[in-house]
Design a binder for these strands. Structure first.
Lengths: 237, 237
DNA sequence: CCAAAAGTGTTTGCGCTACACCCATGG
DNA sequence: CCATGGGTGTAGCGCAAACACTTTTGG
């Protein structure tokens, strides 16, 4: 006799992705204006269902790739939502991931085909089902993580300036930082490599362009570092 | 026509619980020596399947209650495991929770009925499926969380001494701490209330018994606090 | 009176914060 | 030469780490 788990419920497993981006000014979300049922016409996260033969992370990457054309982004599982009535169509649990992408790398055609747009966190519309709650948890997690690990870089282009990095952190934590202290702290990590180039888009003094020291970056990711102490308390869980 | 998600796969959803306890000396896990299939005779975490009408947390609490007779413990979702072949019987994803319990409160009859025992982390046997990995992630998470939030108290009895609390932290992080600095740091939080009683089990000087200031405790849980700076780097993620 | 563990005090130094000042660029 | 924004330096303070000493208890 072959062993089975006969009498237990089989349930739909969905995945939803919170996709963060940064345009130099504000922290943004890639959201979908649904042109399909259910809740057609309303805003939601990008999602999909788990297939029989793929892992959760594979499914999340597939969904992300379909929407943005991007692969190998920073992707992290956050939490699984499973309230019985969360999807009115049928009992569905949803495994939620968040990803960090460099807006400049996106595939605009793919995004438009899905009827998606980048929307500032401040302008976020109400989303369907429990997606608002998912965004809330994702933002909390991003703040928590970015205060202790240098994942912010994932949102920037290859080459970036220190003031750009600062703007990013200010957007994530919705706060103001001291230019001098920020610069010293970041420089102290040895995470930045001088490229020798300067940011020519600026009108006044051109800032140095840096690239990420990927070797050190890996070490900082594996380890733990009070990246921005002043931000720690803003990242309460 | 009613809307359905017809063509997508329905999948078994399991829950597995990592149950941490502390006996005054070592950090322990409540593990099951399986007397049922599959993998009968081997060690595993306590688990079960999600029912149609319950939420994930409800299911986790049900499983925890069945094994220990305990309710209202500290319980937190960690991660969902979903590799296609993780359960050889049938495709199953597993939502993993960890809980902190006071060993003294357990229901011994229930535990024995499930063929479960408390086992020190150091003596942990190999577990079935991907359960070893789950424990690994749970321990990481406990360390990460306990360095920034005072959840350690959940593992202790109502009344406890400062040296007991210190022993607990030393067990969690597998390290030695300075008595003087530890005491000062903990006292500075105003989390402890003097009971006036003393620990009579000790042979030499009897230590003060304290209880938890639950009001302040809630605030510390909601917020963020570098509880034990020296431990922060041990809690890398 | 001694050993073992609990409790209190003190110094030192590093790192965060809050500032002031100089440099580069375009108009 | 002036406005804007980038880059570097410095003083003060608070907290954590590394210590020594006293107190309580049982034998």
């Amino acid at each position: 006799m072959t062993l089975t788990y006969q009498h237990n419920a089989r349930i739909l497993v969905a995945l939803d992705c919170i996709i963060f981006g940064f345009d130099g000014e504000a922290l943004k979300l890639l959201l979908i204006k649904r042109n399909f049922e259910p809740e057609c016409g309303k805003w939601s996260l990008m999602g999909g269902f788990l297939n029989e033969d793929e892992s959760l992370e594979e499914a999340a990457r597939r969904i992300l790739y379909n929407l943005t054309g991007l692969q190998n982004n920073y992707l992290e599982q956050i939490k699984t939502f499973g309230a019985p009535e969360r999807d009115p169509v049928e009992r569905t649990i949803s495994v939620v991931y968040y990803s960090l992408v460099n807006i400049a790398d996106q595939d605009i055609t793919a995004i438009q085909a899905h009827n998606a747009s980048w929307i500032s966190l401040d302008d976020k519309p109400k989303l369907i089902f429990d997606h608002d709650q998912m965004v809330e948890v994702a933002l909390q997690r991003l703040r928590y993580k970015a205060a202790l690990h240098p994942i912010g870089f994932e949102l920037l282009p290859e080459k970036f300036t220190v003031p750009q990095l600062q703007k990013l952190y200010e957007a994530i934590y919705n706060t103001q930082l001291d230019r001098r202290n920020f610069s010293r702290k970041i420089m102290g990590t040895d995470l930045l490599l001088k490229t020798g180039e300067k940011d020519m888009t600026s009108v006044t003094k051109k800032a140095q362009l840096y690239s990420l020291n990927t070797e050190k970056y890996q070490k900082y990711l594996d380890g733990y570092y009070t990246f921005l102490p002043e931000l720690a308390e803003l990242s309460a869980v």
